[in-house]
Each structure stands twice: as C-alpha cells, then as structure tokens.
C-alpha cells in the first residue's frame, strides 16, 4: 500500500477510479459536485468587496457567484494540500520557475515566456469557465456523470479550440 502511494505516477485508469470514488462520496454525503474554478470567483468577489465595493454589488456577484469562503474555496485549498502530499510522498516535489522539460525543449528556458503564457492562459481558463458555468471538474465531469448536455458541449468546445492552439504553438514540432 505504502509502495503504491510512493509511486511517481499511477496509471490514469487507477487515478481516474480514485477521483470517481471521490465524486461519489462528495455527492452522496453532501450533495456537492466538486469543482475547482468557482473558488477563484468567490475569492475574486471578496477582493472586489474590499477594494471596489460597487463592483461586488453587480448581478454576477449577487446572484451567480456570491463572494465568500465557500465550500468551493475549501475544495481548492484541499487540492493544494492533496497534491502537495502526493508529490512529497513520491519525491516529485521541487520548487522551480520553469518546470516542464517539454516546454524547455520546445520554447527555451526563458522564464518570462513561460510565465506570460501561463498568466494569460490562466486568465482565459478562468474567464471561459465563468462563462460556461464550470471547468473540467465541475462541468465536464460533474455534469457529464449526469449526462448533462452542457458537459458534452463544453468538452467538444475545449478540444475544438485546444487542438488548433497547440498546433499554432508547436507548428513544425506538432
């Protein structure tokens, strides 16, 4: 058992089964569909309340995503801790500024480049998730397990734009 926990990487089928069980427990015990993106909006609302209260009074923050420390924020916090423990157990944990070997090979080791793409990509991720009503976890999986049409529209759209984006970035190396 310990050996399994210390493995650097599991088969995606094993890890996927674990996450599937997490979803079942979460829905069965508390009726929560786990998601990661909503937490940023809850926290964003809190920041808006602090520095620009008028903004926090708009329709979105009042009715769609109320600011506050919600269960979504706790899930996000748990994700950090869970991933940290997993990485520590397998000795996979390192602090790096540009961490990915594939990125370095294709785009070079320049820190600004990686961080800029990461920052802009992060904005797009959160913005897109906000419009769609969830991200890969909350909408694609959390909706897909009920066969909600929204989830499958989202997954399809994600690949429709993700594939050309990767192609444009990699070009000849695609």
């Amino acid at each position: 058992m310990m050996k399994l926990l210390q493995q650097k990487e599991w088969s995606p089928y094993l890890a996927g089964t674990l996450l599937g069980l997490v979803y079942i427990v979460s829905i069965a015990v508390a009726g929560i569909i786990p998601g990661a993106s909503g937490a940023f909006e809850n926290i964003g609302g809190l920041i808006a309340q602090a520095i620009y209260p008028d903004l926090a009074k708009n329709t979105y923050f009042q009715f769609v995503m109320p600011p506050g420390i919600t269960t979504a924020v706790m899930i996000l916090l748990g994700i950090f801790i869970g991933a940290f423990v997993s990485a520590k157990l397998s000795g996979d944990f390192k602090l790096q500024v540009v961490s990915d070997p594939q990125w370095k090979r294709v785009f070079g080791a320049a820190v600004w480049k990686r961080w800029l793409v990461l920052f802009l990509g992060g904005i797009l991720l959160e913005f897109g998730a906000g419009i769609a009503g969830g991200c890969t976890s909350g909408l694609a999986i959390g909706g897909g397990l009920f066969l909600a049409p929204s989830a499958f529209i989202f997954i399809a759209a994600m690949f429709i734009s993700g594939i050309p984006t990767a192609w444009l970035m990699y070009r000849r190396k695609y």
Partner: peptide, 27 residues
Amino acid sequence: PAIPPTYVVGNLIGGLIFGVGMAGAGF
C-alpha cells in the same frame, strides 16, 4: 444534486475560450 444547467451558447463560447487557455497554460 442540481445538475449543471445547459445554455448552448454559453457552454460553447466558454469552452472555446477555456480550450485556448488550457493548451497555453497547461492546466
């Protein structure tokens, strides 16, 4: 629990923006 609502245009446009971010940032 409440199932995530479907609104085709929102899901579609949101997903398209999301995919660009996902391919760039890698998350």
